[in-house]
């Protein structure tokens, strides 16, 4: 579904991603872990070109999206993204947050979009919040809305950039639950996270990144119980205490 070939990203002198090669298959839940500054968020953000790769190619559903003549907006409609800071639109109600893109980009009528939004809101148990503004929601609620805002575009893949990192601990569970449900339904997902429990439960593959490279990858069970790379061992020892 996504092919990443020789991906490099530099911020000035700083070489953040070094020759990354990866293939993400349909239905996979790929969990990216690693210490801060390892390039995992940048890697994720390169997939939908929120960061422009310095060199290398990204092919999404057969389209070379890094091609200069390609209009990436079309592919972005098929790649949902969830951010650490939620990034809900504060001047719009919850319902408008969800329906804006489907109405403007897919040409849905307000009724059609409202119907989709209401179904999604029911799914996460927040249908009574449809007409409130994001400021009136808790962090966990905001992030769940952000997830269904992306889902309303009916994406083929969902990208998660540390979706639980800025949540109060008691709200992490409700967000992970929505993500797990998505994974079980077969959604293709790439998740940058520190939630090892999530990786173990629904992850099909774990990538361990450090210093801009993918140092080790494997299925979660193997990688967590029997890491081969000394850096992976070191990292897991630190976070699993």
């Amino acid at each position: 579904m996504i092919n990443i070939i020789n991906l490099n990203k530099k911020f000035g002198e700083l070489h953040v991603l070094k020759d990354i090669n990866q293939t993400i298959e349909e239905g996979e839940v790929v969990v990216v872990i690693g210490p801060s500054g390892s390039g995992k968020s940048t890697f994720l953000r390169c997939l939908n070109l929120l960061e422009e790769p310095t060199s290398g190619e990204i092919i999404f559903e057969g389209v070379l999206i890094t091609d200069k003549n390609n209009d990436v907006n079309k592919q972005r409609e098929k790649m949902g993204m969830v951010f650490q800071q939620f990034n809900l639109f504060p001047h719009k109600t919850v319902l408008e947050n969800i329906t804006l893109a489907p109405i403007q980009l897919k040409g849905l009528t307000r009724e059609e979009a409202d119907k989709i939004a209401t179904t999604l809101l029911k799914r996460i148990g927040l249908e009574e919040k449809a007409n409130t503004y994001p400021n009136q929601l808790s962090g966990g609620q905001k992030q769940r809305i952000a997830i269904i805002r992306a889902l309303a575009m009916e994406p083929d893949v969902m990208l998660f950039d540390e979706p639980t990192s800025s949540l109060d601990p008691e709200m992490v569970g409700e967000v992970l639950e929505v993500m797990k449900e998505l994974a079980r339904e077969g959604m293709t997902m790439v998740v940058v996270t520190h939630e090892m429990g999530f990786a173990k439960e629904v992850g099909s593959r774990v990538l361990f990144m450090d210093e801009g490279r993918i140092m080790e990858e494997g299925n979660p069970h193997e990688l967590f119980t029997n890491p081969q790379n000394p850096r992976t061992q070191d990292f897991l020892r630190k976070i699993l205490i």
Partner: peptide, 14 residues
Amino acid sequence: DRGQMEAARSLGMT
């Protein structure tokens, strides 16, 4: 906040 532009772009908006 930069995240507002990013969120909008990630949904496919120009």
